[in-house]
Amino acid sequence: MFVYSKDLSQYILNPFCIMLDDIDEIPEGGALLYQGSRYMLLPPAALVDFQKSMEDKLGTEAVSQALYSSALRQGRYFTGKVLDELSLEPDDAVRYMAALARGMGWGRIEITSLDISSLTLELEAFHSAFAEEYGKAKDPVCSFIRGFFAGVWQAVTGSEVEGLEMHCRAVEGPSPCIFVFAGSADRKKLRVSISQVKVEED
């Protein structure tokens, strides 16, 4: 259960320190709890090594899809809990989840555009743990972040959405990773530039 009761703006400014206050170890030791759920500290190298090992066996596209799908379910689940227990407005729920991701060290997630009526959300991830750990890649590698925020956006809007990583540090070099999320129905029509989503005319 979420027990968060601090001011949202303070949380967004400094999520890591506030999260640390809320992390407990169970009395007998061996399990860390944050807001009632079990967590463990894991270096990104462990996840990225697993990702690369799976890519060797299954191919990058299959692994990207698997990471995306599982992260989407996680994003949906946690956002649902946040909406339920913290009574946040939809845009604040996205900000909260971005702060949570930052606090967990995935990267500093900045919301560059958010419009519920058009189902579009754009994010930038500075210092993506996945991209920085992966090294040079041919295709975007932040599938977990992409899936997680697709789930966040799906929970907030109630609509099927798709997430694209338009720009990845692992592909393009030092710069933020850029993500765009939009309704699935518009997927084929999306023509995306770095800073805006344009829907093509039929």
């Binding site: 949906r76 956002t79 649902g80 799906q154 809007t157 109630g158």
Partner: peptide, 9 residues
């Protein structure tokens, strides 16, 4: 509806 869906709540 679904458990995770904000507008459903």
């Amino acid at each position: 509806w679904a458990e995770w869906c904000g507008p459903c709540k």
